[in-house]
């Protein structure tokens, strides 16, 4: 085994290392590049105006895709995004339930699935009253059905 042979092997490995390192690095960097770090999407927590703006019953906010439910001064907010494929269920007042137009999922007045392909109930979002007397919804906090915001008339 001559030292010249060792040197040739070493340079061969070095060449492979450099080539694979370069192309591997570029590939990994390109893949990572495709995953955005900053999103210019609407915020997950926001104000939706004063409680008095929402009359008794179920009020749909199309921009935020939520329903604001006012049950005699007890305020609750539920998602208007069907848990099946993300369509917008409609509130059917006569039947006291939500029905999704896309694939026929049905949610009762508690948001629980009572029919159709939806795998999960509609989530209720935390709603609080700010110091400016405006309702504040936080979609990152999902609350149980029993939690309500009661506002004295």
């Amino acid at each position: 085994m001559s030292s010249e042979h060792d040197r040739r092997d070493f340079l061969t490995y070095l060449g492979w290392f450099a080539t694979l390192g370069t192309f591997g690095g570029i590939s990994v960097a390109s893949a990572r590049y495709m995953v955005p770090n900053i999103l210019y999407e609407p915020p997950k927590s926001y104000k939706i105006g004063k409680p008095q703006d929402y009359p008794e019953g179920v009020n749909f906010l199309p921009d935020k895709r939520i329903f604001v439910v006012n049950n005699g001064g007890n305020y609750k907010v539920i998602s208007a995004v069907c848990t099946h494929m993300g369509c917008t269920p409609r509130w059917i007042a006569e039947k006291d339930r939500w029905e999704c137009p896309c694939h026929g999922s049905i949610f009762n007045n508690k948001g629980v699935v009572i029919g159709g392909p939806a795998p999960k109930p509609l989530p209720w979002y935390e709603v609080t009253l700010g110091s400016d007397n405006k309702l504040f919804v936080n979609e990152d906090r999902i609350v149980p059905f029993s939690q309500v915001l009661t506002i004295a008339a």
């Binding site: 495709m34 995953v35 955005p36 999103l39 210019y40 999407e41 609407p42």
Partner: peptide
């Protein structure tokens, strides 16, 4: 899903 949509919503990205 995040990669395909380029975020969490079907929007500009």
């Amino acid at each position: 899903r995040y990669l395909v949509v380029g975020g969490t919503l079907v929007g500009q990205n």
